[in-house]
């Protein structure tokens, strides 16, 4: 659990740090904390609140949600190294919509909101670039979600079963009376 376990060079491979200089990566690393998790350990719990941005350095974790009807857990997706999570709560505090659970032994980098604000106050370029990159990712996800909604909307008439009225009509017509 020391910063030394993650090198500056390793961090530059993370897309969230695109366009970072070595110096900016060092700034970020100075406020980040490196944490290890064992398989099955919960990183974030659904419905709880925290404001941290997480970067996967090594290993795989699962995004898990409890199903409303049955109470069973459903795995929504997996995150691998160089991906990040927690940015929604990081920028807009709200209970987590799903849990994150380690699937394999993991190494994660945690950036706390309070520490990040220190970078902002000091007007570090790293704070600005991190926000910019995170927002780009969020914007892309929002656009994909919007497109999917539009698809669902236009696909609905096709997906609907034929009406009772038209079924009846077909059946009556079939007798050719």
């Amino acid at each position: 659990m020391t910063n030394a376990t993650v090198s500056c060079k390793r961090l530059l491979a993370v897309p969230l740090l695109a366009n970072f200089t070595d110096e900016e990566a060092e700034q970020l690393l100075s406020i980040a904390e490196s944490l290890d998790f064992q398989p099955g350990q919960i990183v974030l719990a659904e419905d709880e609140q925290s404001s941290n941005l997480w970067i996967v350095i090594d290993g795989t974790c699962e995004i898990v949600k409890e199903s409303d009807q049955t109470g069973r857990q459903v795995v929504l997706s997996e995150l691998r190294s160089n991906q990040h999570f927690g940015e929604m709560s990081f920028f807009h505090p709200a209970p987590h919509s799903a849990s994150v659970r380690a699937k394999t032994p993991m190494k994660l980098l945690r950036i706390g909101r309070g520490d990040y604000e220190k970078l902002v106050t000091e007007q570090c370029a790293s704070a600005f670039k991190l926000a910019f990159n995170a927002i780009s990712g969020l914007a892309e996800r929002l656009r994909r979600a919007t497109d999917r909604l539009a698809d669902l909307d236009s696909a609905e008439p096709l997906a609907k079963p034929p009406s009772e009225w038209s079924t009846f009509r077909t059946k009556v017509d079939a007798w050719n009376l």
Binding site: W165, F168, R169, V172, D173, W175, L177
Partner: peptide, 13 residues
């Protein structure tokens, strides 16, 4: 009955 129901059904539709 099929003829009766069918013709009434067709007119209804």
């Amino acid at each position: 009955y099929i003829i009766g129901i069918g013709r009434v059904g067709r007119a209804t539709v």
